[in-house]
Design a binder for these strands. Structure first.
Length: 218
DNA sequence: CTCCCGATAT
DNA sequence: ATATCAGGAG
């Protein structure tokens, strides 16, 4: 079976399981989502939602963050980790959005990734969720781990993984595909100890097949 | 490549 | 105790 055929089966199985997946990060505006995704680096989305729910009661616009002392931003976001870098980036990105884009989050990949603390992963999430724009595929820790285990890609470099996936995944599923693997990665194929016996993808996964073979040998 | 970093599950 | 969590910058 080719990687493309395997991928189509994975998408179907995941669609049957998860339906149309929704963003796990809570937000009410494009800017709120942008900040939430910046905060989500090396942090659970659950923790991000706890922080943003409280913080957005006080500040939720680029104008407000641009005017706020970094120390105050740090206090709000401390529990998400990397809080000094994240606070500095959120303030700098907010100032740039106010000054260069009239307070509106830009839609272009180049404009987004030029913002402080915004890389391809963050830009892909915001573009996909807010405007359904898919010029790339979101590659986070889950997508990286599962695509390697399944055998769709090889290696650690998210830029290369994204390029290889764009050759394999049909373009009309670029947004869903990442969502599905992230949900499966949180829920079943967890990093510490993937639960292959209860995974719907184990027959399509190189790692899963190996685990299941070893189990059946007793 | 290293550094940033708190919370949580195991 | 330690690995991991919707990464990005220098």
């Amino acid at each position: 079976m080719t990687k493309k055929q395997k991928t189509k089966k994975i998408i179907k199985i995941m669609n049957d399981k998860f339906g149309n997946p929704e963003c796990a990060l809570n937000f009410t505006t494009p800017f709120e989502l942008l900040v939430a995704v910046i905060l989500s680096a090396q942090c659970t989305d659950k923790r991000v939602n706890i922080v943003t729910e409280e913080m957005y009661k006080h500040v939720n616009t680029p104008e407000a963050f641009a005017a706020m002392p970094v120390e105050e931003i740090e206090r709000h976001i401390k529990s998400t980790g990397f809080y000094r870098n994240k606070a500095k980036n959120i303030k700098a990105a907010s100032m740039e959005i106010v000054e260069k884009y009239n307070g509106e989050v830009p839609q272009g990949m180049d404009e987004l990734t030029a913002l402080a603390g915004v890389g391809r992963k963050t830009a892909n999430v915001v573009r996909g969720e807010v405007w359904r724009l898919a010029s790339g595929i979101t590659v986070d820790t889950h997508v990286k781990r599962l695509t390697n285990l399944i055998g769709l890609v090889k290696g650690d470099n998210p830029i290369i993984i994204e390029r290889e996936l764009m050759e394999i995944v049909p373009q009309d599923h670029w947004i869903d595909f990442s969502h599905y693997l992230i949900l499966q990665g949180r829920d079943v194929c967890v990093a510490r100890r993937p639960r292959c016996t209860e995974c719907e993808l184990n027959e399509l996964c190189n790692y899963g097949r190996k685990i299941m073979r070893n189990l059946s040998k007793k």
